[in-house]
Design a binder for these strands. Structure first.
Lengths: 94, 94
DNA sequence: CGTTTATTTCGATAATGGTCGAAATGAGTT
DNA sequence: AACTCATTTCGACCATTATCGAAATAAACG
């Protein structure tokens, strides 16, 4: 997971440029931290995992392990610090 | 060229998710309307044209023909109307 | 300890996308 | 009309990416 000051605009933009991942981001925005699996997506488990990895490695989300499941969350503060207004603009338009 | 209310978030995000295209957008922001060819880019003419097409078809830019050359411009107002704050956030971070 | 549950990793496949050079277009110029 | 200049289109190529199913991992639970 990249540090807050290591987030790259191109990488973040790429991460936010896919319909499945935009759904994930919207869902995390609406529902806060939640398990990977409960986000409603029309893709297989492995594809879901793939998209979550892209978001995580771009620095858009953080994952923590809690028992059997992994809770995913938006990195709101870091994103806002590094790219002010970007996430809000995307969420507002999504 | 898509109408202002037909702009799609995913398409616009994809258009803004490439280093060459981000350079173009930054350059158009800094220098206003200008000919395709004078934007400094380390790619061939055909690749340049390709990227400008992606931006145009996503609705990020408009092109008009003036004599031998084509002047490109950001669609600031339409983007702001449809995706408030998005372009500014990208430009601020770029 | 074997089983279930949640998620990831692997390997393969198919689609998309960036890049180029060569040829085409199209407006100005001579 | 021939020529130049700015840009686009075409065709090809290679890299990246989205997708899946199957196998691996890892924690909880019986």
């Amino acid at each position: 997971m990249p540090a807050a000051d290591e987030l790259e605009l191109v990488t973040v933009m790429q991460a936010l440029s896919d319909p499945v991942r935009l759904t994930i981001v919207r869902e995390l925005h609406a529902g806060g931290e939640q398990a990977c699996g409960i986000i409603p997506l029309d893709v297989s488990a492995s594809t879901r995992s793939h998209h979550l990895k892209i978001l995580r490695e771009a620095g858009v989300t953080v994952t923590r392990v809690v028992g059997k499941q992994r809770l995913v969350q938006l990195r709101r503060a870091e994103l806002e610090q590094r790219f002010p207004g970007l996430l809000d603009a995307v969420l507002r338009s999504a």
